[in-house]
Design a protein around this nucleic acid. Sequence first.
DNA 1: TTTTTGGATTGATAAATATCAATTATTATC
DNA 2: GATAATAATTGATATTTATCAATCCAAAAA
Lengths: 231, 231
Amino acid sequence: MAGLNMINSCEKCTAGWKNFKHLSKSELETVNSNRYEATFKPGEIMIKQGSPASNALFMATGIAKSYIEGNNGKNLILDLEKPGSIVLGPGAYVNSRHNYSVAAITSIQACFISADIIKQISRTNSAFAESLLEDFCRRAVRSHNRMVSMAHKRMSGRLADILLYLSNDIFGNDDFDMILTRQELGEMTSMAKECVVRIMKEMEDSGVISSETSRIKILDKGKLISLSEKG
Amino acid sequence: MAGLNMINSCEKCTAGWKNFKHLSKSELETVNSNRYEATFKPGEIMIKQGSPASNALFMATGIAKSYIEGNNGKNLILDLEKPGSIVLGPGAYVNSRHNYSVAAITSIQACFISADIIKQISRTNSAFAESLLEDFCRRAVRSHNRMVSMAHKRMSGRLADILLYLSNDIFGNDDFDMILTRQELGEMTSMAKECVVRIMKEMEDSGVISSETSRIKILDKGKLISLSEKG
DNA sequence: TTTTTGGATTGATAAATATCAATTATTATC
DNA sequence: GATAATAATTGATATTTATCAATCCAAAAA
């Protein structure tokens, strides 16, 4: 199954899930021989909400979105997934179903890793188990921050939060490709796509960002932070 | 430290955290001899956001609220805590700080249990560690549901969700004391307290509930569910 | 290059929600 | 039980946000 550019083995994987550092050679080899590489084109669904949570998804390259499909046809983007992180939804430990979907934003290389094997190893390797706990907890903290942002802030504050997230956590750069559509930005901030456009225009008019549809540059991070804090 | 009515020892605790069933006699005794009972009056803060996450809080009796204190003086109630559940915020595994506060709604008996001891036991008892994971994951799933409710539903749908939660998950009864103030209902649904009043009045006028300020009765659960689904 | 298609944008308008200012219960305190 | 303090309620109004209906643009396909 190996052979693509970056992924020859878990051990040599340039994206390497940091939790794997807790694994012994033989444990890592177990994972390595039970993984399935896959590539995805933008827009393709990688994990479907409601399907059996039989696999975790390791992100080797590219960016994906985790999102909940609401019952009225609306989506809520929970988070973006970047290389080096593993997507093992909490459903794996609750009802063995994925409680959200994951879809490729960019082209993606990924590995499916059996959830059973991850659970199995976590039963015999406590350091690995603890690192799993840490992963879930980090997501919980982030999820709480998202909730506060959405519950307490008006549109400009919410959009500021997402732009700061993209800049600080996803790209590590104030100048980046806007890989999300206006619609998706809305699904991440709980606002209509038209409102995304309008608020971004306001930000551009006031010199906070420069925006060229598919490219964003943060010109005044201080102002953006203050928009976020003002709410 | 023991001696109050319900709590003589972890082993005999009538509220018993179900995860403790995975503990050996001696592990349970370790927990038992390292717990600190406390009682709280309504309104008292049990865990303060930002403080060191040195203890988990086990709920023996009563109801508490977990809530995030936003920076503009607004609170967001994340969830209610009821007897038998343990409150070990994700911060314990992220930055060793509580990332939300917990306060008593009713009178409460609780035990503080050292977070270090819980972590320690989870390192040697994998079944217990897995049950901890399950707890965190259950909360994550619930948190996702809350996010969808808040992001996709209008006020009546959000309030319907909370009333159903109180009825199904907290009291197990369609007729219950409304232990939350209108303000708190608002902090749970992201709406102004005046709006809570108005929507509840609408529900009463349309025969969905009967409401007497501090007592709620769900008269037509079908309609309430349909309000929740309509969004 | 031309056509097609889906996303982006704009303006006008409607709907939802918050805020403000009183007023009226309720509950707690003396 | 009288009084004070807190919560609930109400109506009027302002703000925020969503929706609708056209266009406009830009990338992909023919």
